[in-house]
Design a protein around this nucleic acid. Structure first.
Lengths: 244, 244
DNA sequence: TTCTAAAATTAGGATTGTTGAATTTTATTG
DNA sequence: CAATAAAATTCAACAATCCTAATTTTAGAA
């Protein structure tokens, strides 16, 4: 039974509205997005050119050049003017941290609120830049230390280690190959709804019936359903092969 | 079984990192915070002066003046230079919308992740500015259309209607009065931990034993525990009186 | 009424991330 | 090797939000 008087006596007339953000040290959203974009391009074996990054982020090339200079000054990117840039170890670490946050948050929203895989991307995108590490780790524990997100993508661990990408794109299979959908490498809601309309989800079994070299189509069978998929789409859906 | 080719063919080498924020139309964090601060002061019957708002937000007065001019131009505040400002109906609506978001998000984090009432404020603060209306309404449904947040504060409904504040501050009770803790009007984590250490939570029954006019203390009994509380703290804890 | 201190505002500057309009560099092609 | 198109960069300008340092206004005390 002790003191009352030594309570923090702040001015606080009403619940839920005091603040003082403490944004200190926290990198900006744009910075984090740029690093993720560079990481994504590197992971896809594409050169992270100014133009490619600008397209991903939806900004002008001049903006990318400007940010790249800032990030290079902070040691997150290595930049040789006119010859490109790449992540430093520190930059990659930060990019993976954001990826971990994004994937855990998506999984959390889907599992608790029953949202669809096509509905959570935008919210996860803003939350990943905003919430505390504590909250993210709490989510991780709550979800039972998951290894994959709702799209089948591996969740980097807190040290930044990330499992190798699973499976191969459907587009790389030959007629007769069978497999189980292991990952969808795109979070565009429209694309995800398209896949859902075909009955495709993580874990679906499918078999390649034929590859049509002219129309750019892949013909598949899923159970007793036959579907066609454009080559571009088939590049973005990965399967773990059951037969080779 | 239909088309594959008419899928959205975007460039998307890897899952979870594309974007393009669509911040359009969404008011800025600072704007929303300022409106909340003004609402909070008005609700506490304090004049929302430039200085008071600056203190709440932790910025300089000049910044407040600048933002107030912007908000007045947008019709969210009514401003008479050198004589103060107040919320317009539109401004109040937006402030209440943010309060609803904040309280629902806090409740959600506490209920799903088992966080303490002292741990969620900062995360709720950033999330309330960031997440979609859809997500918030989903949380509302998931929580079973709650009326009060974890601190006992009423959650404004989606039309901006808010229940009258319940109870009275402990400081306003007289010796011998009894009541049940209905609301804590402060989200400072340190203060909330202090209350927890005293065993006080929403729903706790207590009785005022004595009010000490010199030391600024209120002596209480909770069950068989006797505690003292500073006047400032006693102003921030409200109880529903069981005896008058 | 006059003085003064507090409150509020204005002015000017820094930062960050944008853009559009040059300009420079690179790589390719003839 | 020159011409040219694409990619990258620089530059000037803008918007937002913050700051510090004046300056102006108000309100209360003498």
């Amino acid at each position: 039974m002790n003191a009352g008087p030594n309570v923090p006596e702040r001015e606080a007339p009403m619940a839920g509205w005091e603040q003082n953000h403490e944004t200190a040290g926290m990198p900006q959203t744009s910075i984090e997005d740029l690093l993720k974009a560079v990481y994504g391009l590197e992971a896809a074996k594409k050169r992270p050119s100014t133009k490619a990054v600008a397209d991903v982020l939806g900004v002008q090339m001049a903006s990318v050049t400007g940010m790249v200079k800032n990030l290079a000054a902070e040691g997150l990117l290595e930049h040789v003017p006119y010859h490109g840039f790449e992540l430093t170890a520190k930059g990659r670490e930060l990019a993976l941290r954001m990826l971990r946050r994004h994937r855990l948050i998506e999984l959390f929203l889907i599992q608790t609120l029953g949202l669809g895989w096509d509905e959570v991307h935008a919210d996860a995108e803003v939350m990943e830049h905003a919430v505390s590490d504590q909250l993210v780790e709490r989510i991780y524990a709550y979800l039972g230390k998951p290894e994959f997100d709702p799209h089948g993508s591996p969740i980097p661990d807190s040290d930044g280690a990330v499992a190798a990408r699973s499976g191969v794109p459907i587009a790389h299979l030959a007629a007769g190959d069978e497999g189980i959908v292991s990952e969808v490498e795109d979070e565009d809601p429209e694309f995800l709804r398209y896949l859902s309309s075909l009955g495709i989800k993580i874990g679906s079994s499918l078999r390649v019936m034929a590859k049509d070299p002219y129309g750019g189509l892949v013909r598949l069978r899923m159970g007793r359903r036959r579907i066609s998929m454009g080559t571009e789409a088939a590049e973005r859906v990965r399967v773990a092969r059951s037969h080779v």
